[in-house]
C-alpha cells in the first residue's frame, strides 16, 4: 500500500448501477420477447433485431460524432428502448419503418434532450406514436380485427369477452397447439403488436421487477385499477356500446404500457402518491381515448400526455420530511 485514499463518507456503495437496473429490465422483458418470437416467428425476430441494433448504434454514433462525449451505450438503456419499440409495433412492420422509429425514439426523443435521464417523454413510445401517425398502414396491418376496437364490432360483446378469456388461459398453451390460423386470429384480435400478445409473460416480467425492487408496483396497479373501474362504470351503463373491463385490460398493449412504459424511471414521478395520480391519469385517459377517440389505441397517448405533467406531479407530491409538517 503506497498511499491512503482519503475521501468523504460513505465509503461503500450498493451494487445497483444504471446498468444493473437496465439489465434487470431486459431480463424482465425476456419472457415477452420469447413469447412474441414464438408466436410471430422470424419476422418478429427481425423487428427486434433491427430495433435493438438501430437504437444502440444510433446512440453510439450520436454520442461519438455529434456530442463528442464518452459513449453511454454501456448503460443498456438503448437496448431497453430497442426492445420496447419492437414490442410496440406489429411484426409485419418493414425493417426501414422500424429504423425510422428508432431514429425518432433515440435520436429525437432521447438524445436531443441530453440522453438518458434528461428526456421528458418515453423514447420508445414517442417512436411508436410517430410511426402510428406517419405510417398508419404499416402500423395497423392488423386492420382486419381493428373493428374490435371500434364501435361496430363491439355490438356483440359477449363473444368478444369469451375470446379474451380463452386467450388469457390459452396463451401459454398455444405454443403447444399447432392451430396457426387460430393463433393468428387471436393475436390479431389482441391488436397485432408483438408486446400485446402475452399478458402473462409481461406480468411475469413485472413481478420480477417488483421483487428485485427495480420498480414499485403502484403506478402499474393504479393504471389497472383505474382502467377496470372506469370501464366497469361505462360498461355497466351501456354494455352494448362499451367494451368490458377485462377486454380493456388485456388489449391494446395496456399490460405492456402499464408494466414497462409507464414505469420508466425517467418519465414517471418519483413519489408513491405522484405515481398513483400518474397511473390514475393514464388509466382514465386510456379508456377515454379508446371509447371516444379516433385512434383505436389509447395507452401510448395516455402515457405521453401524463409524461408531460410529471414535473408538476414531482412538485406537488413529495415525501413528508422528517419532523416537519
Amino acid at each position: 500500500m503506497s498511499k491512503l485514499l482519503v475521501s468523504p463518507s460513505p465509503h461503500i456503495h450498493s451494487k445497483d448501477s444504471t446498468k444493473s437496473l437496465m439489465l434487470d429490465v431486459v431480463i424482465a422483458l425476456i419472457p415477452a420477447v420469447v413469447c412474441s418470437v414464438v408466436f410471430y416467428g422470424w419476422q418478429e425476430l427481425m423487428v427486434l433485431g433491427v430495433s435493438v441494433a438501430s437504437c444502440v448504434l444510433l446512440e453510439w454514433a450520436i454520442t461519438k460524432y455529434m456530442l463528442k462525449k464518452p459513449s453511454t451505450i454501456g448503460d443498456l438503456s438503448a437496448v431497453v428502448t430497442g426492445i420496447l419499440l419492437a414490442l410496440n409495433v406489429p411484426y409485419t412492420t418493414p425493417w426501414w419503418v422500424v429504423f425510422v422509429g428508432a431514429v425518432v425514439a433515440v435520436g429525437v426523443a432521447k438524445m436531443t434532450f441530453g440522453g438518458l435521464g434528461q428526456n421528458i417523454w418515453n423514447p420508445a413510445l414517442v417512436g411508436r406514436v410517430f410511426l402510428l401517425v406517419s405510417f398508419p398502414t404499416y402500423m395497423t396491418t392488423w386492420s382486419k380485427p381493428q373493428g374490435l376496437f371500434g364501435v361496430d364490432a363491439v355490438s356483440g360483446p359477449t363473444p368478444l369477452g369469451a375470446i379474451q378469456e380463452g386467450l388469457m388461459q390459452g396463451s401459454t398453451v398455444q405454443e403447444l397447439t399447432s392451430a396457426y390460423d387460430y393463433k393468428d386470429l387471436l393475436f390479431a384480435n389482441l391488436g397485432g403488436s408483438a408486446g400485446e400478445v402475452c399478458a402473462l409473460a409481461l406480468l411475469a416480467g413485472f413481478v420480477y421487477l417488483c421483487c428485485r425492487k427495480v420498480i414499485k408496483p403502484w403506478i402499474t396497479l393504479s393504471i389497472f385499477a383505474t382502467v377496470a373501474l372506469t370501464s366497469l362504470i361505462f360498461w355497466g351503463v351501456n354494455p352494448a356500446r362499451f367494451t368490458d373491463p377485462l377486454f380493456n385490460l388485456l388489449t391494446g398493449g395496456l399490460v405492456l404500457g402499464a408494466c414497462f412504459m409507464a414505469t420508466d424511471y425517467v418519465t414517471s414521478p418519483m413519489s408513491v402518491w405522484g405515481g398513483v395520480v400518474f397511473g390514475v391519469g393514464i388509466g382514465f385517459l386510456t379508456v377515454m381515448i379508446r371509447y371516444f377517440g379516433s385512434y383505436p389505441e389509447g395507452v401510448s397517448f395516455a402515457i405521453l400526455i401524463m409524461n408531460s405533467v410529471v414535473p408538476l406531479l414531482n412538485m406537488w407530491f413529495k415525501q413528508k420530511k422528517f419532523g416537519r409538517k
Binding site: D16, T18, L21, T72, G114, L116, Y265, M270
Partner: peptide, 8 residues
Amino acid sequence: THCIRCGK
C-alpha cells in the same frame, strides 16, 4: 453518470 430520476 446522468441522474436517471429513479427516486432511489
